[in-house]
């Protein structure tokens, strides 16, 4: 079934490819081109110029990283200090995002929470890349038993609604940040394994891989030296996109009371804590952490799209 789709979508790109690309190729062959890194940077600059949103996403990403690194040093209030007299105050000059039910400063808590959410996202994505990405590449390249085992594993995980499985894993292993990371990585495993598998599989019999065999490269060296570098861009795009999903997943778990526990500042918990006040009009408690969550995920998604544009060889001339 999947192969049929792939054949269909990857079929020869018609008018655009044949006519325009031939023309563009003819034009570009004349222009002397820089190579390697310089070309990538040039191309990145072009993509950003063509689509300013991507530039915006990069800037936003820098801001998030900054908050994660030095956020706790910047905030005006102690994120854990409650001031019962100032509970449930709407946003003001003193408390930019208002205060929550026990008088903690929402702004400080939102900023401080960046680090925790960012760390969860980065480490779970790194973990799943190591597990799923490598397993998938090996499955696609070697085929046979490796493929069957990885495929079966991915199928089993996919048979669960992913969030439900993450819930189960965290509940079983215990409520810690570490287990949230593991659960998020596990539920993303099939996605990575499948992408890496199909990318490795299409290249398995590619001319340059056969040529590498003729040059005396062993299979393992081909996997590392020829296949993996060609799959990396696709995996990086995927990592950027799943960063957003990882954050949502972690926040969702906290929201239903699994994972990070109060009073830790974490966006999901903060939304959960503010949820009850939404119906009585104290919107700011849940709104600002929710907004932060959304902005972060939005940023990672835009970034993923931008990276895809930068790495897409079809858009390079």
């Amino acid at each position: 079934m999947m192969t049929a789709v792939r054949k269909l979508t990857s079929g020869k790109r018609a008018v655009t490819a044949t006519a325009a690309a031939a023309v563009a190729k003819a034009a570009s062959a004349e222009a002397k081109q820089p190579s390697g890194l310089a070309a990538t940077i040039n191309h990145a600059r072009y993509v950003i110029a063509e689509n300013p949103v991507t530039g915006f996403a990069f800037a936003l990403f820098a801001l998030i990283v900054l908050c994660a690194l030095i956020g706790p040093l910047l905030v005006p209030h102690d994120p854990l200090a409650s001031e019962t007299t100032a509970a449930l105050k709407p946003p003001s000059w003193h408390h930019w995002f208002g205060t929550d039910q026990i008088g903690r400063d929402v702004f400080s808590r939102v900023i401080v929470a960046t680090r925790l959410d960012f760390v969860i996202a980065v480490s779970s994505v790194a973990l799943v890349f190591l597990m799923g990405g490598l397993a998938g590449v090996a499955a696609g390249f070697f085929g046979g038993w490796t493929d069957r085992i990885v495929g079966r594993l991915a199928d089993t995980i996919m048979a669960f609604p992913l969030f439900v499985l993450a819930m189960g894993i965290v509940a079983a292993l215990g409520n810690t940040v570490q287990n949230i990371v593991i659960a998020t990585a596990i539920v993303n495993f099939p996605l990575y394994a499948r992408i890496a598998r199909s990318e490795a599989n299409v290249r398995r019999e590619a001319g340059f891989v056969q040529a590498a065999r003729l040059s005396g490269n062993g299979e393992f060296r081909i996997l590392l030296g020829q296949i993996l570098p060609n799959i990396m861009p696709i995996m990086i795009v995927q990592m950027s996109l799943t960063m957003g999903y990882a954050i949502l997943n972690a926040a969702g778990l906290s929201f239903i009371g699994l994972g990070v526990r109060p009073p830790t500042a974490e966006w999901g918990i903060m939304v959960a804590e503010g949820a009850a006040f939404m119906v009585s009009g104290e919107w700011w408690i849940a709104f600002f952490p929710g907004l932060a969550l959304m902005v972060a995920v939005f940023c990672f998604n835009l970034l993923g799209d931008g990276l895809r544009d930068i790495f897409d060889p079809q858009r390079r001339t």
Binding site: A206, G207, F208, A211
Partner: peptide
């Protein structure tokens, strides 16, 4: 061996 498709037979990287 020399391959049929010169593009496909060279690693793009």
């Amino acid at each position: 061996m020399v391959f049929q498709d010169p593009t496909d037979s060279l690693n793009p990287r």
